[in-house]
């Protein structure tokens, strides 16, 4: 039966967190479809280094392509490998991270295979579909669910006829969970030269600087996030003060980033980071679906907004109706007083 495939990303020989998240999701989808979960790793010196990282996620077949020129990542060698492997193996589903690599590679592969690709999914499910016009019924399709343009709308996308059904998912959206430390699957070491042509190596990386992200949004247990309602860069500094007092981190909505109140790295949501803090303090954020997509798993939500009907209030445990300029300094003041 046609498997579920996950393309795993690596930095050096370390599998990226997003790939573990996708393997976990892929395992669940494969269980539901009663098929195998297969993983693909393409890189240099990965043989012997990645098997133990990957198998515990419940991988039935691991495909390894190990050759010096496969790292650092460039588009065509990785694309050629996936295209030829998928032509042979005919997966029904392929998942990739919505990362710089996944978003460079996914469309190239989907174009070659004329398969559909849905970017930035926030949920994946198996379901059925009736095409009333064509009078056709489909079972076991991948529902690729993502917020769509239009504020409070979530679209379910399907690819009824083309395979593989491809989807990218941002890091942090799904949760990584080991299936079984002792899970046994098959490992296949492929000969990369059979998949890659000399011309595929035409683009060369000549220099590379990658740093770990400066902020710790993903690991923070308290996040103070600012939206368009914060109103200015200066007011955003108030949020930084509050976050510092609470030993938390600051985050932002896209509207706050676009308005220049803070840097892009802080954006939370569908096209930013996804977070699961213990406490989320939303300051002047209306609660558009694209924003909520990135924070809905938060524990306690506190909303500060001068509009008592802001949509985010429906998600909040505490709704403070008031102005940022007034409420945030008071929070700082009373926290300082009371926390000692």
């Amino acid at each position: 039966m046609n498997s579920v495939f996950v393309y795993c990303e690596i930095e050096g020989t370390q599998i990226e967190e997003v790939s573990f998240e996708l393997l976990t999701k892929g395992r669940k989808l494969a269980d539901e479809l009663n098929v195998r979960l297969e993983a693909v790793v393409v890189g240099a010196d990965v043989k012997g280094a990645v098997e133990k990282q990957i198998m515990p996620y419940g991988v039935d077949v691991l495909h390894i392509f190990d050759a010096p020129r496969l790292s650092p990542y460039t588009t065509r060698p990785h694309a050629s490998i996936l295209i030829r492997l998928f032509e042979k193996e005919q997966p029904q589903i392929c998942l990739m991270g919505a990362t710089a690599i996944g978003r460079d590679l996914g469309p190239r592969v989907s174009s070659a295979l004329t398969s559909g690709l849905t970017a930035d999914c926030t949920a994946l499910k198996i379901g059925e579909y009736d095409d009333k016009k064509a009078g056709k019924h489909y079972d076991n399709l991948l529902y690729q669910i993502r917020p769509a343009f239009g504020g409070n709308i979530v679209a379910t996308i399907i690819n009824p006829d083309n395979r593989p059904q491809m989807a990218t998912v941002r890091s942090g959206v799904m949760k990584a969970e080991v299936r079984d430390e002792a899970y046994r699957g098959e490992v296949i070491y492929h000969d990369a030269e059979e998949y890659v042509n000399a011309e595929d190596y035409a683009v060369q990386v000549i220099d590379r600087h990658v740093e770990k992200s400066k902020n710790n949004l993903k690991g923070a247990s308290i996040i103070v996030a600012g939206g368009y309602g914060v109103g200015s860069k200066e007011n955003f500094d108030l949020l930084r003060q509050l976050a510092e007092e609470l030993h938390g981190e600051v985050g932002a909505s896209r509207a706050a980033v676009d308005a220049g109140y803070c840097e892009h790295e802080l954006q939370i949501g569908q096209t930013g980071v996804t977070i699961r803090p213990k406490v989320y303090i939303a300051c002047g954020i209306s609660g558009a679906i694209q924003h909520v997509a990135g924070m809905k798993e938060s524990g306690i939500v506190i909303s500060i907004n001068n509009d008592p009907n802001a949509p985010i209030n429906a998600l909040a445990d505490y709704v403070i109706t008031g102005n940022i300029e007034e409420v945030v300094p008071k929070m700082i003041k009373y926290y300082k007083e009371k926390s000692i």
């Binding site: 690709l117 769509a148 709308i153 379910t156 996308i157 006829d161 909520v292 998600l315 909040a316 505490y318």
Partner: peptide, 18 residues
């Protein structure tokens, strides 16, 4: 190849809020 199966308005589940 991709079709929109459905679109849904999102109604946030209202929490008991203070």
């Amino acid at each position: 190849p991709t079709k929109v199966k459905s679109v849904q308005s999102v109604v946030f589940k209202t929490k008991e809020s203070k």
